[in-house]
Protein backbone atom coordinates (compact mmCIF):
# COMPACT_ATOMS: atom_id res chain seq x y z
CA UNK A 1 0.00 0.00 0.00
CA UNK A 2 1.26 3.44 -0.85
CA UNK A 3 2.61 5.32 2.09
CA UNK A 4 2.67 8.82 0.67
CA UNK A 5 3.94 10.23 3.96
CA UNK A 6 7.13 8.14 3.84
CA UNK A 7 7.94 8.82 0.20
CA UNK A 8 7.17 12.52 0.64
CA UNK A 9 9.35 12.64 3.72
CA UNK A 10 12.32 11.02 1.92
CA UNK A 11 11.95 13.36 -1.05
CA UNK A 12 11.86 16.36 1.28
CA UNK A 13 14.88 15.20 3.27
CA UNK A 14 16.86 14.73 0.07
CA UNK A 15 15.89 18.20 -1.15
CA UNK A 16 17.00 19.65 2.20
CA UNK A 17 20.40 18.00 1.63
CA UNK A 18 20.79 20.35 -1.34
CA UNK A 19 20.76 23.13 1.25
CA UNK A 20 23.48 21.23 3.17
CA UNK A 21 21.14 20.53 6.07
CA UNK A 22 23.13 17.98 8.12
CA UNK A 23 20.12 17.15 10.33
CA UNK A 24 18.07 16.20 7.28
CA UNK A 25 20.99 14.09 6.01
CA UNK A 26 21.15 12.18 9.29
CA UNK A 27 17.38 11.57 9.21
CA UNK A 28 17.64 10.42 5.60
CA UNK A 29 20.44 8.02 6.57
CA UNK A 30 18.50 6.60 9.51
CA UNK A 31 15.42 6.07 7.39
CA UNK A 32 17.00 4.56 4.29
CA UNK A 33 20.39 3.04 5.21
CA UNK A 34 19.03 -0.36 6.41
CA UNK A 35 17.41 -0.94 3.02
CA UNK A 36 20.36 0.40 1.02
CA UNK A 37 22.86 -1.57 3.13
CA UNK A 38 20.88 -4.75 2.53
CA UNK A 39 20.87 -4.09 -1.24
CA UNK A 40 24.68 -3.79 -1.28
CA UNK A 41 25.15 -6.76 1.01
CA UNK A 42 23.21 -9.03 -1.33
CA UNK A 43 25.40 -8.07 -4.26
CA UNK A 44 28.88 -8.03 -2.68
CA UNK A 45 28.16 -10.68 0.00
CA UNK A 46 30.84 -9.31 2.32
CA UNK A 47 30.05 -7.04 5.25
CA UNK A 48 33.25 -5.00 5.01
CA UNK A 49 32.68 -4.21 1.32
CA UNK A 50 28.99 -3.40 1.87
CA UNK A 51 30.00 -0.91 4.58
CA UNK A 52 32.47 0.76 2.19
CA UNK A 53 29.79 0.98 -0.48
CA UNK A 54 27.25 2.44 1.94
CA UNK A 55 29.80 5.04 2.97
CA UNK A 56 30.73 5.96 -0.61
CA UNK A 57 27.07 5.94 -1.64
CA UNK A 58 25.93 8.37 1.06
CA UNK A 59 28.86 10.69 0.37
CA UNK A 60 27.75 10.66 -3.26
CA UNK A 61 24.14 11.35 -2.21
CA UNK A 62 25.21 14.33 -0.06
CA UNK A 63 27.47 15.79 -2.76
CA UNK A 64 25.06 15.24 -5.66
CA UNK A 65 21.66 15.81 -4.05
CA UNK A 66 21.16 18.78 -6.38
CA UNK A 67 21.08 16.36 -9.33
CA UNK A 68 17.97 14.64 -7.96
CA UNK A 69 14.92 15.65 -9.97
CA UNK A 70 11.71 15.05 -8.07
CA UNK A 71 9.65 15.30 -11.25
CA UNK A 72 11.54 12.44 -12.92
CA UNK A 73 12.32 9.99 -10.12
CA UNK A 74 11.45 9.08 -6.56
CA UNK A 75 14.19 9.73 -4.02
CA UNK A 76 14.33 6.07 -3.04
CA UNK A 77 14.82 4.71 -6.58
CA UNK A 78 17.42 7.45 -7.19
CA UNK A 79 19.38 6.43 -4.09
CA UNK A 80 18.93 2.72 -4.82
CA UNK A 81 20.45 3.21 -8.26
CA UNK A 82 23.48 5.00 -6.79
CA UNK A 83 24.00 2.20 -4.26
CA UNK A 84 23.48 -0.69 -6.72
CA UNK A 85 25.83 0.85 -9.29
CA UNK A 86 28.52 1.24 -6.64
CA UNK A 87 28.02 -2.36 -5.46
CA UNK A 88 28.10 -3.73 -9.03
CA UNK A 89 31.23 -1.72 -9.94
CA UNK A 90 32.90 -2.85 -6.71
CA UNK A 91 32.23 -6.56 -7.13
CA UNK A 92 33.27 -6.59 -10.80
CA UNK A 93 36.66 -5.06 -10.03
CA UNK A 94 37.47 -7.81 -7.54
CA UNK A 95 39.32 -10.99 -8.53
CA UNK A 96 37.01 -14.00 -8.56
CA UNK A 97 38.90 -15.74 -5.73
CA UNK A 98 38.18 -12.84 -3.37
CA UNK A 99 34.43 -13.07 -3.92
CA UNK A 100 32.99 -15.49 -1.42
CA UNK A 101 29.60 -15.58 0.17
CA UNK A 102 30.30 -15.01 3.86
CA UNK A 103 26.72 -15.80 4.71
CA UNK A 104 26.46 -12.39 6.34
CA UNK A 105 22.77 -12.15 5.57
CA UNK A 106 22.25 -15.16 7.82
CA UNK A 107 23.97 -13.56 10.80
CA UNK A 108 23.55 -9.78 10.67
CA UNK A 109 20.86 -8.15 12.75
CA UNK A 110 17.88 -7.13 10.67
CA UNK A 111 16.46 -3.65 11.07
CA UNK A 112 12.92 -3.06 12.11
CA UNK A 113 10.20 -3.55 9.56
CA UNK A 114 7.22 -1.19 9.30
CA UNK A 115 7.96 2.18 7.72
CA UNK A 116 11.02 0.73 6.05
CA UNK A 117 8.78 -1.46 3.94
CA UNK A 118 7.06 1.63 2.54
CA UNK A 119 10.02 3.57 1.26
CA UNK A 120 9.11 2.95 -2.36
CA UNK A 121 5.99 4.03 -4.19
CA UNK A 122 3.66 1.11 -3.44
CA UNK A 123 1.58 1.53 -6.62
CA UNK A 124 4.69 1.19 -8.79
CA UNK A 125 5.96 -1.73 -6.70
CA UNK A 126 2.63 -3.56 -6.99
CA UNK A 127 2.44 -2.95 -10.74
CA UNK A 128 5.94 -4.35 -11.27
CA UNK A 129 5.20 -7.44 -9.19
CA UNK A 130 2.02 -8.13 -11.17
CA UNK A 131 3.92 -7.79 -14.45
CA UNK A 132 6.74 -10.04 -13.19
CA UNK A 133 4.16 -12.67 -12.30
CA UNK A 134 3.05 -12.71 -15.94
CA UNK A 135 6.54 -13.71 -17.15
CA UNK A 136 7.67 -17.28 -17.73
CA UNK A 137 9.33 -18.70 -14.64
CA UNK A 138 12.74 -18.85 -16.38
CA UNK A 139 12.51 -15.17 -17.39
CA UNK A 140 11.32 -14.05 -13.96
CA UNK A 141 13.99 -16.08 -12.18
CA UNK A 142 16.80 -14.75 -14.39
CA UNK A 143 15.67 -11.12 -13.90
CA UNK A 144 15.37 -11.54 -10.14
CA UNK A 145 18.80 -13.17 -9.84
CA UNK A 146 20.38 -10.48 -12.02
CA UNK A 147 18.83 -7.71 -9.92
CA UNK A 148 19.28 -9.03 -6.41
CA UNK A 149 22.71 -10.61 -6.86
CA UNK A 150 24.11 -8.23 -9.50
CA UNK A 151 24.95 -11.13 -11.85
CA UNK A 152 26.10 -10.73 -15.46
CA UNK A 153 24.86 -12.90 -18.36
CA UNK A 154 28.00 -15.04 -17.98
CA UNK A 155 27.51 -15.48 -14.22
CA UNK A 156 23.83 -16.32 -14.69
CA UNK A 157 24.81 -18.86 -17.34
CA UNK A 158 27.21 -20.57 -14.91
CA UNK A 159 24.88 -20.33 -11.96
CA UNK A 160 21.88 -21.74 -13.82
CA UNK A 161 23.97 -24.15 -15.93
CA UNK A 162 22.30 -22.80 -19.06
CA UNK A 163 23.89 -21.56 -22.34
CA UNK A 164 24.57 -17.83 -22.37
CA UNK A 165 22.46 -17.34 -25.52
CA UNK A 166 19.46 -18.75 -23.67
CA UNK A 167 20.09 -16.49 -20.66
CA UNK A 168 20.31 -13.40 -22.90
CA UNK A 169 17.09 -14.41 -24.59
CA UNK A 170 15.26 -14.91 -21.25
CA UNK A 171 16.40 -11.51 -19.99
CA UNK A 172 15.60 -9.61 -23.18
CA UNK A 173 12.22 -11.19 -23.72
CA UNK A 174 11.41 -10.68 -20.06
CA UNK A 175 12.34 -6.99 -20.23
CA UNK A 176 10.34 -6.50 -23.43
CA UNK A 177 7.28 -8.06 -21.78
CA UNK A 178 7.75 -5.83 -18.73
CA UNK A 179 7.97 -2.79 -21.00
CA UNK A 180 4.63 -3.67 -22.57
CA UNK A 181 2.99 -4.59 -19.29
CA UNK A 182 4.18 -1.41 -17.54
CA UNK A 183 3.40 0.78 -20.58
CA UNK A 184 6.98 2.10 -20.61
Amino acid sequence: MLNAESTESINNLLVRCVLKDATAFESLYKLTSPKLFSISLRIVKKQEWAEEILQEGFINIWNNADQFRGDKASAMTWMTRIMRNKAIDHIRKKPQNEIQDEGVLDTVVSGTSGPLDHLFDADTTDALQKCLDELDNSQKNAINMAYFQGLTHQELSESLDTPMGTIKSWIRRGLQKLKGCLSL
Binding site: F37, W62, S110, F120, L184
Partner: peptide
Amino acid sequence: KWSNKIDTLAAGITPVTPPTHVFTAI
Protein backbone atom coordinates in the same frame (compact mmCIF):
# COMPACT_ATOMS: atom_id res chain seq x y z
CA LYS B 1 12.38 5.51 -16.71
CA TRP B 2 13.60 1.94 -16.23
CA SER B 3 15.11 2.66 -12.82
CA ASN B 4 11.81 4.10 -11.57
CA LYS B 5 10.24 0.70 -12.24
CA ILE B 6 12.99 -1.91 -11.91
CA ASP B 7 14.52 -0.43 -8.74
CA THR B 8 11.24 -0.86 -6.88
CA LEU B 9 12.20 -4.56 -6.81
CA ALA B 10 14.32 -3.54 -3.82
CA ALA B 11 11.13 -2.77 -1.87
CA GLY B 12 10.89 -6.48 -1.04
CA ILE B 13 14.39 -6.74 0.44
CA THR B 14 14.57 -7.24 4.20
CA PRO B 15 16.39 -4.23 5.67
CA VAL B 16 19.67 -4.81 7.54
CA THR B 17 20.85 -2.24 10.07
CA PRO B 18 24.43 -1.15 9.30
CA PRO B 19 26.95 -0.78 12.17
CA THR B 20 27.00 2.68 13.77
CA HIS B 21 30.64 3.30 12.83
CA VAL B 22 29.66 3.62 9.16
CA PHE B 23 27.73 6.86 9.72
CA THR B 24 30.45 8.14 12.04
CA ALA B 25 32.93 7.65 9.18
CA ILE B 26 30.59 9.37 6.69
